[in-house]
Amino acid sequence: MIQQSKIVIKDLNLYYHEKQVVKELNLEIPQNEIFAIIGPSNSGITTTLRTLNRLCDLTFGARQEGEVLLDGKSIFNKNVNVTELRRKVGMVFDVPTPLPMSIFDNVAFGSNLNGKKSKAEVEEGVEKALRMSALWDDVKDRLNTPAARLSGGQQQRLCIARVLALEPEVILLDRPCSALDPISTAKIEDSLIQLKEQFTIIIAPHTIQQAGRIADRVAFMLMGDLIEQGITHEVFSVPKDKRTNDYLTGRFG
């Protein structure tokens, strides 16, 4: 089966002011798979993810060279509508960030922004998104209570639901489970495996084990360099590069 690349990253160099944080990155991310980018902190992974939906634009001094293609079209093109791009390429952050409003309003936030949907459509979308992130049964009776009252794991699933409600094509997750307990983490991992049927998922896992459990492919980055990439079980069982092997066996990182 030939899989289509959803995102193609070509010769991407990322900088903060004069400091280069990602060097000559080339990656092809296939559709409907979970792609994990692993590496120690300070490897440029977060910056890479933030570039894919152009959230980097907001950071003073961040700039990029090279090309990122989404469905074959450059995301840096002047004609790209950045807010549309961010709806297509959703992002979940490392800390659960419910906005100070009700559970329902959090999930409906994105849909209400452009006001194109009727109230019934929004309600339907919220329920669908909460079901997909496996939170519906927990919250269906208290949609109007403040989101901040949910547990950390529930909050993070709420953040995932909030992104899903936008009906995106790609979901970026930046260490989404780093603040969560193992049970919540397992629930989120289960949801992600379900979700890849419909979405393309790029995750920066907070542990190597998480990449091993859920990712179809991994890329290993170190200090802004891409060291190695491939099918997860191949990379994990026979790493080609000594540094990958060292990282996987816990010699650093």
Partner: peptide, 13 residues
Amino acid sequence: NLYREVGFSLGAT
């Protein structure tokens, strides 16, 4: 600042 970024990442102007 995360609130702003969440807003932007959900397609807010």
